[in-house]
Amino acid sequence: MAISRDEVLHVARLARLALTEDEVDRLTTELGAILEAVGVVAELDLVDVPPTEHPLDVVNVWGEDEPHESLPLDDVFANAPAREGDLFRVPPTV
């Protein structure tokens, strides 16, 4: 079960990781080996087996539609890398 360098780059883009060339090389090898190991799940014929949706047999857990206190602004921005006024600032999206 090998994974190609191109696939690694594609996955890195999906995962939002700017990998260095070295990292891409290393991950291509490591992921290949790991996928080989975990790929044994393919040897089971499981067409009739339902996937586990949840480890706990519980349904209908919800909260009532009653407002709670929101965070004070000091807390909202306590860890913010970049704040402008009462907004979070990020570089342009395009």
């Binding site: 009462d86 907004l87 979070f88 600032r89 990020v90 342009p92 999206t93």
Partner: peptide, 12 residues
């Protein structure tokens, strides 16, 4: 517009 923005601000 988005294409020419210098930065973006977010209100959650």
């Amino acid at each position: 517009r988005i294409g020419g923005a210098d930065y973006s601000l977010i209100d959650f």
